[in-house]
């Protein structure tokens, strides 16, 4: 237990060694957790965030698609979202449906932890109806979500009517305390709508990462390109999308600036 005879003076003893080791490990863990230094090649690609269309807070979007699903050509109405035939409402909800049901509100942490299988199913359901028990579970869950969303929508509409702001279709309805997620989804859908009409590129798999800060007035206070694959046409297309989308932005809830990063890329590129 004396590996470093030469430096006996500075050897802190077994206790010290242990302390050092412990400290190092804690520091390392902290670094890894804080900075998300997981050894993944493309963490951004993996962390793609999907929201069930039915769970969107936007009641009837002013225009275009409300949700960041895999396909953008989906009709706007939430009812028309994933295609599986509506199941009988009273079919017993299996355990799988529990997480979404117990989800408090559409905040990001919850959404992020959503299993990716759900996303796959959603994509799959666009083309072919899922089969078997899995499909049934999925349909049940969808039905439940839809019911919830419908309830929430009606409550929202009523609340808005009471407040006399019913005319603002598609406006986010979050209060100051729950700022962020609803508004983020709202901005996201605006960007997505705009991007469909501006996308252009001259390279095979372009990608641009931007960070937006939306000021309390609902205007873009900061537009920062954090990373780009170097395709000028694609960068310009993103720029156009942001500017077009900005015209329909509402003020962020709570009167505080809203900051969010976005990764722009062509559909089907960079995803595994």
């Amino acid at each position: 237990m004396k590996p470093l005879r030469m430096r006996k003076n500075s050897y802190p003893g077994p206790g010290g060694m242990l302390a050092c080791s412990f400290l190092l490990h804690v520091a390392l863990l902290a670094i890894v957790v804080t900075f998300r230094l997981y050894p993944e090649a493309h963490p951004l690609a993996e962390e793609t965030y999907y929201v069930d269309m039915v769970s969107l807070p936007v009641a009837s979007p002013a225009k275009g698609t409300p949700a960041p699903t895999a396909t953008t050509q989906q009709p706007a109405a939430p009812q028309a979202a994933p295609e599986p035939p509506r199941p009988a409402p009273q079919s017993p909800a299996p355990a799988k449906a529990a997480p979404p049901a117990s989800r408090p509100s559409m905040t990001y942490p919850t959404a992020k932890t959503k299993p990716t299988t759900s996303k796959q199913k959603q994509v799959q359901s666009d083309e072919t109806a899922p089969t078997g028990a899995e499909a049934k579970a999925f349909q049940d869950r969808m039905a439940k979500l839809e019911r919830q969303a419908e309830d929430r929508r009606q409550a929202d509409v009523l609340a808005r009517l009471r407040k006399g702001t019913g005319g603002k279709k598609g406006a986010p309805t979050g209060s100051g305390t729950q700022a962020g997620s609803d508004y983020a989804a709202y901005i996201h859908s605006r960007l997505k709508d705009a991007f469909v009409d501006t996308i252009a590129s001259q390279t095979k798999s372009p990608q641009v990462t931007v960070r937006l800060v939306i000021g309390p007035d609902g205007r873009i206070a900061q537009y920062k390109v954090e990373n780009s694959s170097g395709d000028k046409m694609f960068e310009d297309a993103v720029d156009r999308a942001v500017h077009v989308a900005e015209r329909s932005f509402r003020k962020p809830p709570g009167g505080t600036p809203f900051e969010q990063g976005f990764v722009f890329r062509p559909q089907g590129v960079g995803l595994k």
Binding site: G215, A221, Q222, Y223, K224, E246, P257, F258, E259
Partner: peptide, 13 residues
């Protein structure tokens, strides 16, 4: 929370 927006950015916002 988002810091003060950098003035030099935001082209033609």
């Amino acid at each position: 929370a988002p810091a003060a927006p950098e003035a030099k950015q935001a082209p033609a916002i």
